[in-house]
Simulated assay, not measured.
Amino acid sequence: MTDSPTFVVVLLHEDRGRDRALQLPPPGSGTPPVRVRVATTFAGAAAWDVYELVDGGEWPEQAVYHHVAIEPSLAAHLS
Rank of each mutant, 00 (worst) to 15 (best):
V54A: 07
S73A: 10
A75H: 12
E61C: 10
G28D: 06
D49H: 11
I70N: 13
R37P: 15
W48V: 08
D3T: 05
V68D: 10
S4E: 08
E14V: 05
W48H: 12
H67T: 01
A46W: 08
D19P: 11
W59T: 04
T31E: 06
T41A: 14
V8I: 11
V68F: 15
E52R: 12
D49L: 12
V8D: 06
L74F: 15
P72G: 05
G44Q: 03
L74D: 01
D3Q: 07
G28N: 08
R20W: 06
T40S: 15
E71A: 04
P27V: 01
A63N: 05
L53D: 05
A69K: 06
L53H: 03
D55I: 13
Y51D: 01
P72F: 04
T40E: 12
G57L: 02
G57W: 04
P33K: 02
A43N: 11
A45V: 01
T40V: 12
V10T: 08
H67P: 13
H67W: 06
A21W: 02
H13E: 01
Y65I: 04
L22I: 00
V64L: 03
M1L: 14
V54I: 09
V8Y: 03
V34C: 14
V34W: 15
Q23W: 00
H13Y: 02
A69Y: 13
T6Q: 08
A76R: 10
R20Q: 07
S29Y: 01
Y65D: 02
T41E: 09
D49M: 11
V9I: 00
E58T: 14
